[in-house]
């Protein structure tokens, strides 16, 4: 009973602010905000950059997660700890760190310049900032997923004539897929909601969190509420759909 009460209080703590968003935003302002091109662009930018970062970095994160799950090597604990660093450092600091790597003065920034790619103040920079803060969610989930796949099954597959690459794609990956998909969803959701790192790398074009912040600082709470409510609704809707699909 006590646990139920404590749990209920916590749920209320999560639900109340979100519910407040919708209760405090007058319906009349919704249609106006939805029709606003800058709001649409910001939400769309948040959705696709986060998705692009998730997919792009999954190509690096999943193999790393597999190595961490299967291999024993020196400094493995150090690497496992390092992966969680983006979660624990302040996200504004994370943004400054990313900016340091991709600015025009950096090697990466200069290399990108050479091929005509602009990183700062550009969706590509946003992708990098989002990926930096959200990649731990994917690596950790995928590593746990691979750890849960019995190594014995991989050994059997090898003894049946399958190459290590084939074993990875036909045994390890499918059996860890639930955790990996869960990690992908979490990475995408976390990246999409990122403000601190993104605002430093690219104030413009504006992602939804930056747009909501700007509306709040320039015009106040009343003006920012509908934009926040719409962004949260879109995010939740996609999040729920992806969760349902991933569990099937």
């Amino acid at each position: 009973m006590v646990f139920a009460f404590l749990g209920g209080a916590l749920l209320l703590f999560i639900i109340a602010p979100i519910a407040g968003l919708y209760l405090n935003a007058p319906l009349s302002s919704w249609t106006e905000t939805v029709a606003d091109k800058s709001v649409q662009d910001s939400i769309w930018l948040s959705l696709w950059t986060s998705m692009a970062g998730t997919l792009l970095f999954s190509l690096l994160a999943i193999p790393l997660a597999y190595i961490l799950a299967r291999k024993k090597f020196r400094f493995k604990s150090l690497i496992n700890g390092l992966i969680d660093v983006p979660i624990i450092i302040p996200h504004s600091a994370a943004g400054i760190a990313v900016l340091g790597v991709i600015s025009r003065d950096s090697v990466l920034g200069q290399a990108a310049d050479l091929v005509g790619l602009k990183l700062v103040g550009n969706p590509s920079g946003i992708i990098l900032a989002m990926a930096f803060v959200s990649i731990p969610f994917l690596i950790n989930a995928a590593r746990d997923g691979f750890c849960a796949v019995p190594e014995r099954l991989e050994k059997i597959a090898l003894s049946l004539g399958a190459s290590p690459v084939r074993v990875f794609f036909t045994i390890s990956l499918p059996l860890a897929s639930r955790s990996i998909v869960s990690g992908l969803i979490m990475m995408w959701a976390r990246g999409m909601s990122e403000f601190g790192a993104v605002v430093i790398v690219a104030y413009n074009p504006q992602t939804a969190p930056v747009m909501i912040f700007e509306r709040f600082t320039s015009f106040g709470l009343k003006y920012s509420l509908p934009a926040a409510a719409i962004f949260v609704a879109v995010s939740l809707l996609i999040f729920i759909i992806l969760r349902v699909i991933s569990k099937k």
Partner: peptide, 11 residues
Amino acid sequence: PIQNRQISIVY
């Protein structure tokens, strides 16, 4: 390599 040994293992 294991995959070329033509030995099957059953647990």
